[in-house]
Each structure stands twice: as structure tokens, then as C-alpha cells.
Amino acid sequence: MHVPVRWEGVYPALLTPFTADDQLDLPLFEANLRAQLDAGMHGFIIGGSLGEASTLEPDEKIALLKSALAVCDGKVPVLLNIAEQSTKQAIKRAQEAEANGADGLMVLPPMRYPADARETVAFFTAVAEATSLPIMIYNNPYDYKIMTTVAMFEELAKYDNIQAVKESTRDLTNITRMRNAFGDRFKLLGGVDTLALEAILLGCDGWVGGLVDAFPQETMAIYDLAKAGQVSEALDIYRWFMPLLELDIHPKLVQYIKLAATATGIGSEHVRAPRLPLIGTEREQVLNVINSALAKRPVLV
């Protein structure tokens, strides 16, 4: 029985912990997941960019999915990310996710090929027609070089299971464009940590977070305060959080956020090659950001 996906609230893009010998560290994955649940998360995304999707084997993604479903036990929805090079593989991964109990999908445009508008719409359409699961489209032209425009969403709006957008264009105006064009037809979730509060105040329904993997309670506090209209209180925490949130917009966001999660006791530094753990001056600089924030960590009411 699938858990309904409301597309509201905070959805961590979960890290994928590894052991020192490059196996999935499911006990640590589950410990992080429980810390997120304890903080009140509204849903989870497995195998995203932050989850090192490009290096995971299909069976590893399913293992993570099953682990998360067991821990969540129907309390909140669990989504699997679909990021593939071919339409055929994207369809296969989506159908495997549905068969193994996923509650929804986040779908990226084609990987490694800069598809044009017609091709991108055809790709999303093919996935939507191949599954009954609700879908959130990840709109991130900054990193993936494909912009899903308002005109493209007009074509996709006829598919009932395409329900939400992870808004990562880094153009806050696009939130208003989408609202003006579609009203509430698509749920919008801010996907850039350094623009998260702004996105919520401009009308986003939720936040797909990165630093939430290390700081779940602070992330939830910002979201809850902003939605309650307590903007000044949210802003106080957000300003404290910003040096940490900036770790999310670096090419080494995986290493940086894993280091932060290690510092807060719910992660490890192990990554999968070609990524390598941080060393030397770079590691010291990131640790300084993390430790400086920890020294001034706000007391949440």
C-alpha cells in the first residue's frame, strides 16, 4: 500500500553512506533516517545527486529503498530518484521502483545528452506513461543544462501523475512564473539550500534539502516558522545556517555535506570513487565552517 505524497514540507535528499570497503552502510543510513524522522520530516528522496546516484548500482538503489520503507513504516512517503542516460533505462528503473514499493519518483531529464525541448518532454512523458507513481520533475538547468520551461510544463500538465517540481533553476522569478501559469496544478519545492527561505516565502510548498542530512532540526525549524508567518524568527536561524547551506552549491557538495553529517554524529566521510574524501587545506576549511557553526548553534524552542 503506497503512502500518499502530499508534496509539502521538508524532503531530505538523503546521503548514501558507505563502509570503508565501499559497501552500502545500511545501519548508518537507517540511523540518519531515524534522526530525520524524529525531526518531523514529511518525506524522503533516495538516490539523488547528493545520494551519489551516478555511482550506485540498480540493486543498491532498491536496497536503500527497501531499508527506508522499513524504517518509515508507512509514516511518510519514500521517493526514488530516476537519473538515467536513456529513456529505456529510465522506464525500467521507474517500474522497478514501483514494483519494490516506492511511493513516488523524482525524475531528472536525460543524463549526459543535452536534449532539446521536444526530446525532454518526450522523455518525461514516456516515464509518466510507464508508471502510476506520482512524479516530481527536477528542474535544474544550472547543473544538468536542461531547462524545463513553462511551455514544456504546459505539455506535461495533461499527465495526472506529474504532480510536482523541484525548483532548482536558481531564478526565484520562476516560482512566480509557474504560479501565474498553473496556479496550484503543480506543487513546487525549493531545491537550492541557499535560496530555501526565499522560495518558501514566494510560495513554494516544500523544501528538498541537502544540509538537512546533518542538521534536520534547524531545517525543520526554518520551514515551520516561515509557514507560520514567523519570518523574523526563521531569518535568525537562516542567517546562522547560511555558511553551512553554501556547502550545498559546490561541486563537492557530497563530500562537504558528508563531513557535516559526520560532525553531527549521523554520517561518515566515506564516498564512492571517483569521489575521494577531503584532505589537507580543503578539509580544514570546510571543517572550520562546520565547527564555527556548531559553536554558535541556535537553541531551538
Rank of each mutant, 00 (worst) to 15 (best):
E154H: 02
H270E: 12
M147I: 02
D205A: 08
P27W: 03
R112W: 15
R170I: 13
E84P: 08
I266Q: 09
N139F: 04
P251L: 03
E218N: 03
Q217W: 14
L172R: 00
C72Q: 01
H250E: 15
A130D: 00
K61A: 12
P274W: 02
M147P: 01
R185M: 02
E167V: 14
L79G: 03
M1T: 12
H250S: 13
L105E: 02
D59H: 13
K61S: 12
R93N: 14
Y159T: 01
G265F: 05
Q95F: 01
Q85E: 15
N180T: 11
R185H: 06
N161G: 04
G210C: 02
A35L: 11
P243C: 08
K145M: 11
V231L: 07
L202H: 11
K92D: 14
N291E: 14
T131L: 03
Y138Q: 10
R283F: 09
A181S: 03
M178L: 14
L33G: 03
A94I: 03
I45P: 12
D236S: 13
K145A: 12
S49W: 07
Q255S: 12
K166S: 00
A68W: 06
L26H: 03
L235T: 11
A53M: 15
P251K: 01
K187Y: 10
T125W: 01
R283C: 09
P77E: 05
R179G: 01
D236P: 07
I266F: 07
T264Q: 08
L253Y: 15
V10C: 08
L65M: 10
A196P: 07
I146Q: 00
I137F: 06
N288Q: 15
A126C: 05
G9K: 08
P109R: 02
P109S: 09
A115K: 08
Y223M: 07
Y159C: 00
Q230N: 13
W207Y: 05
I249P: 09
E57C: 10
